[in-house]
């Protein structure tokens, strides 16, 4: 019994160390890699432009719902004036970075894990290595660098459209003065909150894109399946673990920052 606990602990520690090495190696290998900028732009497209519609749609609806729910709760205390505070702080501190990260994982992270898994399967990654090209620098590093830049932008866009959504449901649907809402927003948000939002988003980006790349890249190490099934298994694992790690990291960062 104790041996089982010990073995699982060791394997978790081993996996964490392997993941950290994977990230570290990718960044180190990217130094001086040619045409890195081009590949970062492509990764920026995958995580940025291609995820933009879903971010905007989900952001707007999140704001709308927050506005609606918040209004009914605050109405009971006669404090509708605080709607802006509620919507803006929920969005900036938690929902913006977390939901934006989850949306990008769903759209770009799963695609990345599957793509790398197939490239591993069809020996494209081995081919890079035989050419003396670092597959970490070529395939992984641009995605990681892009994620550090793209996630904060996506979180900011999410928050911005969310605030607009909140004001729509507050002022247009429920008759709250639009000025009351926006002045509450401006009063409530501190530069600390904004910094926290961007820091969270960047950390989520590194963790989720790192995890998706890690699982896709190591699809051949999947013990339960081979071939196409290994790709699907590692893609599933990448998405599930990314979602868990976003929420876990959110809790850790929040408890450290607040």
């Amino acid at each position: 019994m104790l041996r089982i606990v010990g073995r699982h602990t060791l394997s978790i520690v081993h996996a964490l160390g392997d993941f950290a090495l994977f990230i570290g190696r990718s960044f180190r290998a990217s130094v001086g890699s040619r045409k890195l900028g081009r590949r970062i732009v492509r990764a920026g497209f995958e995580q940025g432009a291609r995820c933009l519609p879903v971010i905007l749609i989900v952001g707007t609806f999140t704001g709308l719902v927050l506005g609606l729910q918040g209004y009914y709760v605050l109405n009971k205390f006669g404090s509708e004036g605080l709607l802006g505070t509620l919507v803006s702080l929920s969005l900036i501190r938690e929902m913006g970075p977390v939901l934006a990260a989850l949306m990008i994982v769903g759209q770009a992270g799963s695609a990345l894990a599957a793509e790398l898994g197939i490239q591993r399967n069809s020996e494209q990654i081995a081919a890079l290595e035989t050419m003396g090209v670092s597959s970490h620098a070529f395939l992984v590093a641009p995605r990681l660098i892009a994620s550090l830049l793209v996630y904060p932008m996506q979180a900011a866009l999410f928050v911005t459209v969310g605030l607009v959504g909140g004001s729509l449901s507050g002022s247009v649907l429920l008759g709250l003065e639009s000025g009351t809402y926006w002045s509450a927003v401006e009063r409530a948000v501190e530069s600390q909150d904004v910094r926290e939002c961007f820091a969270k988003a960047a950390v989520f980006g590194l963790l989720t894109i790192g995890l998706c790349a890690y699982h896709g890249f190591n699809a051949h190490r999947c013990r339960s399946a081979t071939g196409a099934q290994a790709v699907s298994a590692s893609t599933t694992r990448a998405v599930v673990q990314s979602c868990i790690i976003v929420l876990a990291a959110d809790y850790v960062i929040t408890s450290f920052l607040v």
């Binding site: 803006s88 932008m153 900011a156 866009l157 911005t160 401006e186 948000v189 530069s191 904004v194 910094r195």
Partner: peptide
């Protein structure tokens, strides 16, 4: 778009 949103949050709201 992303930079505009970041600028809006940091300049208009944050500070």
């Amino acid at each position: 778009l992303g930079l505009a949103a970041i600028a809006y949050l940091t300049i208009k709201l944050g500070a």
